[in-house]
């Protein structure tokens, strides 16, 4: 760790962190020196970006190729009415700049692909998956497993959310996303928020849980959701944890993985090995 020191303004800003033994000035330095790539500046990405920036995570990357639409504003709270029509990455970066001058932001107004994922995600301490499609989810999982990058996974559907954490650290034996869901479903078989709707506050809860996991990873404190899938049901107001095991037949992290590069996979349909 560098000799980064907290100045008086930072000691004030982060005083509720610094006072805790689990964080302290050293932990706050870790956060300020930390870097997180948030993929998706929508429902999950909005609260995650807000809390990571507020916590003083020093460098945020934000990936999204969409522009803000009015129908986003019911849940994508990093954007405002005046942002309609603007690129989401620009709107989100503006929010961060207003919130915390300690945080630098790199924006990528593009869709993540096998060709650009290393250029965009390489070098970040943690990747937070706040995407809204299986192609990006499987690509991020495979890239993070292969590169040893920590990954926070979150997803939402109507009133329900799922969160898990894949630290991908040395000696880690927890499952990855493909261990649980080896292949993406055929296109059109799983509904999206645009067709089924989503409770506006739902991604707030799920995105905040993802931000919590990322902060713990950067602090190296607490127990993350490794080997556990947290299920949240807003209608019942219930949480349930499903214990998961590493899958020895997993195509990316199993005993004899078929995937050793994201270039091996066609991410357009079921995210399986390219037959060519």
């Amino acid at each position: 760790m560098s000799d980064l020191r907290l100045d008086a303004t930072q000691l004030d800003r982060y005083s509720r962190h610094v006072i805790m033994d689990e964080v302290g000035p050293e932990g706050q330095k870790r956060l300020l020196e930390g870097s997180v790539l948030v993929v998706g500046a929508g429902g999950l990405g909005s609260p995650a970006i807000q809390y990571l920036a507020a916590a003083g995570v020093g460098h945020l990357g934000i990936v999204d190729d969409d522009v803000v639409e009015r129908s986003n504003l019911q849940r994508q709270i990093v954007h405002g009415d005046d942002d309609v029509g603007r690129p989401k990455v620009e709107s989100a970066a503006d929010y961060v700049h207003r919130l915390n001058p300690d945080v630098s932001v790199e924006i990528y107004e593009t869709r993540l692909t096998p060709e650009n994922v290393d250029e965009l995600a390489g070098g970040y301490d943690v990747v937070l998956d706040a995407s809204d499609n299986f192609a990006t989810r499987y690509l991020l999982n495979d890239y993070c497993v292969l590169s040893g990058t920590a990954l926070s996974h979150g997803a939402i559907y109507r009133f329900e959310g799922q969160v898990t954490t894949i630290p991908n650290r040395e000696g880690s034996d927890g499952p990855c996303y493909r261990c649980i869901f080896p292949e993406a479903p055929e296109p059109g078989t799983v509904p999206d928020c645009a067709t089924t709707g989503v409770l506006g506050v739902l991604p707030g809860t799920v995105g905040c849980i993802q931000a919590t996991e990322v902060v713990k990873l950067l602090l190296e404190q607490g127990d993350v959701l490794e080997g556990r899938l947290l299920l949240y049901d807003a209608m019942d107001m219930s949480f349930e944890t499903v214990e998961l095991q590493h899958n020895p037949n997993c195509p990316v992290c199993g005993d004899q993985p078929a995937i050793d590069s994201v270039g091996d996979v066609s991410y357009e349909h079921t995210c399986t090995i390219d037959a060519d």
């Binding site: 706040a130 999206d192 499903v242």
Partner: peptide, 10 residues
């Protein structure tokens, strides 16, 4: 059997 739904929304 435990059945988990694949969900993609974000």
């Amino acid at each position: 059997l435990t059945v988990l739904r694949l969900i993609k929304g974000g």
